[in-house]
Simulated assay, not measured.
Amino acid sequence: MSRPRLLLTVDAPSLLHRNHHARAESELRDRAGRPAWALHGMLRQILEAIDQFAPDAVLFGLDDRRSSVREQAYPAYKAGRAAKDPALVDQLERAGALLDALGMRTVTPAGLEADDVNASAATWAEAAGWHCVIITSDRDSFAHISDRTQVLRLINGGISASPLLNPARLRALYGIAAEHYLEYAALRGDASDNLPGVPGIGEKLAPVLLSEMGSMQAVWADIDHCAGATLVATLDSYCQEVGRPRIGASVLKRLATPAARERFEFNMSMMSGRTDLDLGLTPDVPGSPGLLPLEPDRVSRVVGYLGVPSTTQLALRVLTEPPASVGRPPVGLTTPAEDR
């Protein structure tokens, strides 16, 4: 039985940021003398991931660095982050051209971010019957985890040491179902994006609230139509089962304010990724950008320009040869039927 086809989706800015800070001491320059350590580090990690997962297509999401619909809606979005090193900015600006020259597929959505590309990629894979692996160091993509989409969260130690998260592993980490992760994040907030959470509902209480009530939609409906009676009874019953003091009344008091719901709904709107982007993927058209394998001469020329022979050799092996794992599921992936 042939394996389902696999789309590897890469949060390019996330990887560039990590590799800039991790590899800056190398001061690697390309053949034109421009900073290249972040570009090389990102590419090296993606080559390792392609070698591991044997994808059929690779898609890179990039941020629109000129405008942001989220910043227009909320000027404080991501405020407080340190100014970017000019060398990092230079490599962020050049990343798309490098990847396009290599033959990869890149998407820079107007006013949006790589997170939106990830969301649309997961939706595309589901509709097309493909599997999807999102590579990122950002937790936002956890909202897209499903039977068909997993997230390789890049941490210290690189590709081989990074966790591959599926619905079961996400539940083990956070105590919530994958389909509720976005609600969990909206309750908790995200300090890195300067998005405060719902007051009094932190990362420990949010999973309890969602697992016991099923969804925030159920919570709001109970508050609107039953004055929160079901919420209080459900949470107090949970507390009795686990041997802790009752929390139902205090949680209701925190959630019953207009400010709590406004904060939750605002965070949901800011954190939700766009799922309707045109990714330009045409997997049935041979030679389309992003489809593997790539042309050897092109790979040798583009990767060779970074000036690291070992990476050029790896790229030629990984990007220009048919996957060695055809006929079996990629590492860590099963079909939905096998999951059951």
Rank of each mutant, 00 (worst) to 15 (best):
Q217W: 01
Q217V: 00
A218T: 04
A218G: 00
A218R: 13
V219T: 05
W220M: 03
W220C: 01
W220K: 08
A221W: 05
D222I: 07
I223A: 03
I223L: 14
C226S: 11
A227Y: 11
A229Y: 11
A229N: 15
T230I: 13
L231A: 01
V232A: 03
D236Q: 11
D236P: 10
Y238G: 02
Q240G: 15
R246Y: 08
R246I: 00
R246F: 10
R246S: 13
I247M: 13
G248T: 01
G248K: 04
A249S: 13
S250C: 03
V251Y: 02
V251C: 01
L252D: 01
L252M: 05
K253Q: 15
R254A: 15
L255F: 09
A256W: 00
A256E: 11
P258T: 11
P258M: 07
P258I: 12
A259L: 14
A260D: 05
A260P: 04
N267C: 05
M270A: 08
M271Y: 04
M271E: 01
R274C: 14
R274Y: 13
T275F: 05
T275H: 14
L277S: 02
D278E: 14
D278Y: 09
G280V: 00
T282S: 15
P283G: 04
D284R: 04
D284L: 06
P286A: 05
G287R: 06
S288V: 06
P289M: 12
P289R: 08
L292Q: 09
P293Q: 00
L294H: 02
E295I: 10
P296K: 11
D297G: 08
D297Q: 14
R298Y: 02
V299K: 10
S300N: 15
V302L: 09
V302F: 07
G304C: 06
Y305L: 11
Y305S: 15
G307K: 08
G307N: 09
V308Y: 10
P309I: 02
P309D: 12
S310M: 04
T312A: 10
T312V: 07
A315N: 10
A315D: 02
L316K: 10
R317G: 03
V318C: 09
V318L: 03
E321T: 08
P323H: 02
G327D: 03
